[in-house]
Design a protein around this nucleic acid. Structure first.
Length: 514
RNA sequence: GCUCUGUUCGUCUAGGGGUUAGGACGUAUCCCUUUCACGGAUAAAACACGAGUUCGAUUCUCGUACGGAGUACCA
């Protein structure tokens, strides 16, 4: 059950380590929608406690992506807020006191073991046939920490500037229980958990500490995150208890993971590329490799389509309704209806949504896309807006992406360079050729009234007068004019291309097609 | 390995002790059309397996199989 006893405040907490994974985008979406649904606040907190993984530009990328999707934060490192700062690196100083509080209350301890010693411990444990290789209640008694050292020795080492970490002291036997909104009742025995590091030797907190402290301080009511966090949730619960914050503990909701289309593993960059779809919302430039990873936006996906598609990956209403605007999603969303099972990411439906939302656009909006495409592909054209608008109208029902207005109608902008093979074999003969000749002779009579509908009617009349079969004859003309066997209304194509151009195309076709 | 977790058409899912197991995407066919789309119609397509409980189980329980996650001084 979703607990709504206190003001809803949720956070999306990405790490600025690279492009934002599409799974993270979905997490942000669910957080946003949940917050808005309950008149709550949606915050974005940057979890940059790992200085070695920090990537320049990743944070601004995250904000740009979320803005594009309309998932704007009420509080964040970008817009600020009463709980600022919202960047953990800027909160560094405040974590230590909490870690020390835990040491004082006996819930944590200092540990001086080096990486080598840790490796050695694990190796020995493995050789001894131990099934649990972790730093825990059993093994900590053999390690170098404030539990095995005298207080004096511990102090001496710290004062001497020796590197140390602070670890949680996980109880030997204790049941840790909590209720997850999507997974239900959880019960984990503390003996299966380890003494996770809370404070790193560089003075930075680990995710676990920072996350719990910040969620508490920022009065987060619900933690909505990916299922990969489920195994560490008991640790987080234990931290709340250890701090004495049990009554302020947020409610957890662990979202099912997005899997590769073949179901093998978490959705990965590699598999996404293999299956030919983006995994990042926006283009992401990887400096070290000097390559750009495709983004949904640049591929032509509309934000409303992506949101709609993502919303349905792991969530569904009890009705058959599947088309939701963000606003509508906020109305109908219900966290309790989030599914438990992981979800395979198949792009097909996203394409369908894109096509669907494109058809909802006005011709004027499509015109903007067309112009953007021209700029992007460096295409020059001397068509008037009036003409371009007609092109948009002509193409709107047959495209999946905005750039298709141009890409699928190239023949409107340039002379055909090749002719559809199958079409030629099938239609460039007999009646078809006769009809093309007929058109070549008679089209000039329409020059003064060169308009799609008029051309079409006359074409139809001519077919009838000559006793030709429409299906035999029109494809040949189409071939001559556009080079293709399929496509938009031929009359309109001819109007848009223009009389002189059509005549030229027919001449060229007769010369070129053999 | 260990801990956690999951399993309804190809995919996303609805449903839930007695149903013709519903929808959407995709696929196929048909209608519309000069063609391609759009639109409309139709079809093929699923309860992982085995026990138990029950008059009855896809639905509840337990196992099995298979999948996923975690297992760092990363988040």
């Amino acid at each position: 059950m979703v607990n709504l006893d206190r003001p809803v405040r949720v956070r999306f907490a990405p790490s600025p380590t690279g492009g934002l994974h599409i799974g993270g985008v979905r997490t942000a979406l669910y957080n946003y929608v949940f917050a808005k649904k309950h008149q709550g606040k949606f915050l974005i907190r940057i979890e940059d406690t790992d200085q070695t993984r920090f990537v320049e530009g990743a944070e601004s990328y995250i904000f740009e992506a979320l803005h594009w999707l309309g998932l704007n934060a009420d509080e964040s490192s970008e817009v600020g807020g009463t709980f600022a700062p919202y960047r953990q690196s800027e909160r560094k100083a405040m974590y230590r006191q909490y870690a020390e509080q835990l040491i004082e209350s006996g819930h944590a301890y200092y540990a001086f073991d080096t990486a080598e010693e840790l490796d050695l411990m694990r190796k020995n444990l493995e050789e001894a046939g131990a099934k649990n290789l972790s730093y825990n209640a059993l093994t900590r008694v053999n390690m170098t920490n404030s539990l095995t050292l005298t207080p004096e020795e511990t102090k001496k080492r710290i004062d001497a500037g020796e590197h140390y970490v602070i670890r949680i002291k996980m109880p030997k036997k204790d049941d840790i229980r909590f209720e997850d909104i999507v997974k239900g009742k959880m019960n984990v025995h503390s003996s299966t958990l380890d003494d996770k590091v809370l404070m790193k030797s560089d003075g930075m907190p680990t995710y676990h500490l920072a996350n719990v402290v910040d969620d508490y301080l920022m009065e987060i009511s619900h933690v909505i995150r990916g299922e990969e966090w489920l195994p560490s949730a008991p640790l987080h619960v234990f931290l709340y208890q250890s701090f004495g914050w049990a009554d302020k503990m947020p409610q957890f909701a662990h979202l099912p993971l997005l899997l590769n289309p073949d179901g093998q593993g978490k959705l990965s960059k590699r598999k996404a590329a293999e299956y030919g779809f983006p995994i990042f919302p926006l283009d992401w430039f990887e400096k070290d490799k000097n390559i750009t990873i495709d983004g949904f936006r640049e591929k032509g996906y509309l934000p409303e389509a992506l949101n709609n598609f993502l919303a349905l990956l792991g969530w569904h209403t009890s009705s058959d309704e599947e088309v939701f605007s963000l606003e509508h999603l906020i109305e109908v969303f219900d966290m309790e209806r989030v599914g438990k099972a992981s979800v395979k990411f198949e792009i097909k439906k996203a394409e369908w949504f894109n096509q669907y939302y494109i058809r909802l656009k006005t011709n004027e909006e499509l015109l903007q896309y067309l112009k953007e495409t021209f700029v992007k592909l460096n295409i020059k054209n001397d068509f008037s807006d009036e003409k371009l608008l007609k092109i948009c109208n002509l193409m709107r029902d047959r495209i999946t992406f905005p750039q298709d207005i141009y890409l699928d109608a190239k023949y409107l902008f340039e002379l055909p360079t090749e002719y559809d093979q199958k079409g030629v074999a099938k239609n460039w003969q007999g009646e078809g050729l006769l009809f093309v000749d007929f058109c070549q002779n008679n089209l000039p009579t329409l020059k003064e009234n060169w308009e799609g509908e008029n051309i079409k009617h006359n074409l139809h009349d001519w077919v009838e007068q000559n006793g030709y079969k429409m299906g035999k004859v029109m494809p040949a003309l189409r071939l001559a004019v556009s080079g293709a066997s399929g496509g938009a209304d031929l009359g309109m194509i001819m109007e848009l291309v223009g009389f002189d151009n059509v005549m030229e195309r027919i001449t060229i076709a007769k010369k070129t097609i053999v």
